[in-house]
Structures are given as structure tokens and as C-alpha cells.
């Protein structure tokens, strides 16, 4: 569904952030993108929705080359791709409801959106999503009145309001505490499976990634160095990605105990409903 071919990005400063990335994400697959800071993870997902212009290569979404579209066509392409941000990127002075509805902007003309005249189907969908992320009573609260985890839930709802085919997720848990991080990751991955969404999730917490995703891709210095199921991550592959370090506490053997420890401190069901994945 999403196909990257020979994607490279060189910034104006001369830094080569991505080199010849070729990657295919089938529909409904949740993929984690791991790698050290500065490896180009953020650049990669921003090239997909053209927040960053790739220098060369193509990005195909359902056969359409996104790197070649402009203006209205670009906006129509972008509205099929939801994005969730590290710092939530909410408009803090708007209410929760307005933030969620802003996911529909590309479906609406300027004046209707300016006057907040959203169709009632959008409003019902927004309420359903708020219920799903557990914030249905907060719809009138202002963005800056929420906690970090709540803000990220609103960010998730906004992305899903777009009815996207693909979710781009940029370090969703980097600003959150460990417990909330798990809840947010679980919520994102559950929603993807419910709605048959493909997702590319940038994350530097390898353990968290392994628990929730179908596939892991490793980037190092802008190059693809690993691609496989989470179980295939070994000490050697982690060394390939991150460099020399004692990885024994991160790889397979200790995973169960880590899970158990997590379950002990974190017996929470995901907020809203639904069970453990």
C-alpha cells in the first residue's frame, strides 16, 4: 500500500539524512521504525506526507506518487495520512472538540471551517472517537487544561478523524511517563487493528516496540540496516542499529520477565474498553 523507492534526503546544510530507502508497508501492518537519534526516522516519516521534501526517490500511496503532487492534490493525499506527534501538537487555546474536528479540515471549505459549521456526521464521529479514547466528557476543555497523556489521546483522535489509510506516528511516547507510554502505544496499535490501518511508528524504546508491533525496521545514519519481525531482533542486530552496548536485558530472553514486571505495575486495561492485545 505504501511503497518507498530509492528515497533520499539531503538538507540544505549538506547533511545526508536518508540514503536510498526502499521499503514496502502492506495494508493493515503496524511497523516500528527504530534507530538512534539523528538516524533519520523523523525525516523519513515526514517525507511520506511531504512535511519534508525528499531530494530523490518516490513515495507511492495506493499507486499514487505523492512526491509529484502539488496544491489541492497534495492536500487530498495528506488527508489520507494521519499523523501523531511527539509533543502532541495540539492547538492549546482551542477546545478538545475543535482540536479533534480540525482533522476534518481538508474535507471542508474555508468559510465552513472558519465558522465551525461541521456536518453532524463529523460531530458524531468526533464524539465516538473521544469515547473510544476515553475523553468524551472533556470535549469543552481547552487543550492546555489537559495532561500529557490526555493531549496525546486528543492527537490520536484528530489523526483518526481524517479517516486515514495510513498513520504516521512520531515518537508518540517520548514525552510521557512509562505507564502512560504503554497505554498510548496499546491504544494506537489497537485502533490500527480495529480499523485495518497501516502505521509507521517512530520509537526509540525498543522493548515497547517489540511488544506491540508486527514488524521492526532499523535505521542507522540514514540507511536501512534491519527489517524483520520483532522476534528477530538479536544482540547482533541491535548492535548493527545502535552500536556496541550490552543488549542482553533488551533482547528475547528477558522479554517475558519484563512483560511480567510491566503487568505487575500496569494491570490497566486500555482506557475506554477492549482487552489486552
Amino acid at each position: 500500500m505504501l511503497t518507498l523507492t530509492g528515497l533520499s534526503k539531503r538538507y540544505d546544510t549538506g547533511d545526508l539524512a536518508l540514503t536510498d530507502i526502499t521499503l514496502e508497508v502492506p495494508a493493515g501492518q503496524v511497523m516500528a521504525l527504530i534507530g538512534p537519534s539523528g538516524a533519520g526516522k523523523s525525516t523519513l516519516i515526514r517525507c511520506v506526507n511531504r512535511l519534508v521534501e525528499p531530494s530523490s526517490g518516490t513515495v507511492l500511496l495506493d499507486g499514487q506518487d505523492i512526491t509529484r503532487v502539488r496544491g489541492t492534490k497534495l492536500r487530498q493525499a495528506r488527508r489520507q495520512i494521519g499523523m501523531i506527534f511527539q509533543n502532541y501538537a495540539l492547538v492549546e487555546r482551542l477546545s478538545v472538540m475543535e482540536n479533534v474536528l480540525s482533522g476534518r479540515l481538508a474535507y471542508l471549505g474555508f468559510w465552513r471551517s472558519f465558522l465551525r459549521q461541521f456536518p453532524s456526521s463529523d460531530i458524531k464521529q468526533a464524539l465516538n472517537l473521544l469515547e473510544r479514547v476515553g475523553l468524551e466528557t472533556m470535549f469543552d476543555k481547552r487543550g492546555d487544561a489537559l495532561s500529557g497523556g490526555q493531549k496525546q489521546r486528543v492527537g490520536i483522535a484528530r489523526a483518526l478523524m481524517q479517516n486515514p489509510k495510513l498513520l504516521l506516528v512520531d515518537e508518540p511516547t517520548a514525552s510521557l511517563d512509562p505507564k502512560t507510554s504503554r497505554q498510548i502505544m496499546r491504544l494506537i496499535c489497537e485502533l490500527c487493528r480495529e480499523q485495518q490501518l497501516a502505521a509507521v511508528i517512530n520509537i526509540h524504546d525498543v522493548v515497547l516496540a517489540q511488544q506491540f508491533v508486527d514488524r521492526v525496521v532499523g535505521l542507522r545514519a540514514g540507511k536501512l540496516v534491519f527489517d524483520g519481525p520483532p522476534s528477530a531482533l538479536t544482540e547482533k542486530t541491535l548492535t548493527d542499529i545502535y552500536g556496541e552496548e550490552d543488549w542482553s536485558t533488551t533482547t528475547g530472553e528477558t522479554d517475558e520477565s519484563d512483560e511480567a514486571a510491566a503487568a505487575a505495575i500496569d494491570p490497566l486495561k486500555p482506557i475506554g474498553q477492549g482487552g489486552h492485545p
Partner: peptide, 16 residues
């Protein structure tokens, strides 16, 4: 708030 939530369920919403 209850009133606004009830309206919301019918798909009617205006900013505060």
C-alpha cells in the same frame, strides 16, 4: 455540560 453532551450525540455542536 450535560445539555451540550446530549446535543453532541445528535451531531449538534457549537464552540463555547
Amino acid at each position: 455540560d450535560q445539555q451540550r453532551l446530549a446535543l453532541l450525540k445528535d451531531g449538534i455542536w457549537k464552540p463555547l
